[in-house]
Design a protein around this nucleic acid. Structure first.
Lengths: 155, 155
DNA sequence: TGATATAGGACTATTTTAGTCCTGTTTGAC
DNA sequence: GTCAAACAGGACTAAAATAGTCCTATATCA
């Protein structure tokens, strides 16, 4: 399924809400009401985003959260990493691979390359893209075919 | 983390093993031994792959599994879908979206486009690619930037 | 000083995933 | 015809990841 976790999903929705009105601080309760999500969960999500440096928080009576950077400077990767940690398709995709099957695996290198391609794709998608109501246009036909590849021979 | 499940990871390893010697049938126990993975798990994985039509099985004393198609005609998507079900980043990425937040979500369309781009990328990676020991070359700089995008205006 | 709001972390519950096992069926060899 | 090898299918358990809640502390402003 290659799915985002629910919290990441929430995070994207929340970030988009802030991005659409970036001047002022948004409180967790305000955002939770607007997104129709339970307050404690939204609060938790915002804390994670703040810890990752994607939003800045302000305590106290006129407090709330605001974007730390412009929507153009926050990527989908940033949001995903903030909630889920490093992006990678396999255990060994990111540093200090835990996998003790390295020797017999035989597909590690290539999965890593695929991971990297996905990561690059997600780097190119910004919060500004996500937040806009008109759909963004990503190329549906990526030029994987045009890349130099040698074929496996059987036997 | 956008990670593959362990079973999907195993599936890729197993498929690659078969792809490197596609002429004969491979038994589950043989593959499990070669991959250094527990037999019951490998058996389960192979059953799922067979059910998805990626491998054909043959029972009996000279039985085992073989690829249903050439390695060039089996994609990474195929393998992922066989084990994990439809690829999609969000709940609503694939048909009959369960999400009751459609109205307030505001990012659904764009996530779906991102999902589609990833799916296309994975469609372009074949088992032949995964199986080859020399690393494949995927473009690290995908042309997302060159795509027409309108910006979000604040206000 | 009190109300508002975030910070941090502990905790529980739920869901998903992994892994195992049992019983049945097919195939080939003797 | 019988036996052993090997897959089919599904039930079940265990483990891990995720989601969600709550409590206490701290900062800010009026």
């Amino acid at each position: 399924m290659l799915k985002l976790s629910k919290l990441t999903d929430y995070a994207a929705v929340i970030m988009a809400q802030i991005a659409r009105d970036p001047r002022r601080a948004h409180t967790a309760s305000e955002l939770s009401e607007r997104a129709n999500l339970p307050y404690p969960t939204v609060g938790k999500t915002l804390k994670m985003l703040a810890k990752a440096g994607l939003v800045v928080s302000r305590r106290g009576s006129h407090g709330g959260y605001a974007l730390a950077r412009t929507p153009e400077d926050i990527s989908a990767s940033d949001i995903i990493v903030a909630i889920e940690g490093p992006i990678g398709m396999t255990e060994c995709s990111h540093a200090d691979g835990e996998c003790d099957l390295m020797d017999v695996c035989g597909v590690a290198d290539n999965w890593q390359r695929v991971s990297m391609a996905i990561r690059t794709l997600l780097d190119g998608v910004t919060l500004a893209h996500l937040a806009q109501t008109s759909p963004i246009k990503l190329p549906v036909h990526l030029p994987i075919q045009s890349v130099t590849l040698s074929d496996v021979r059987d036997g």
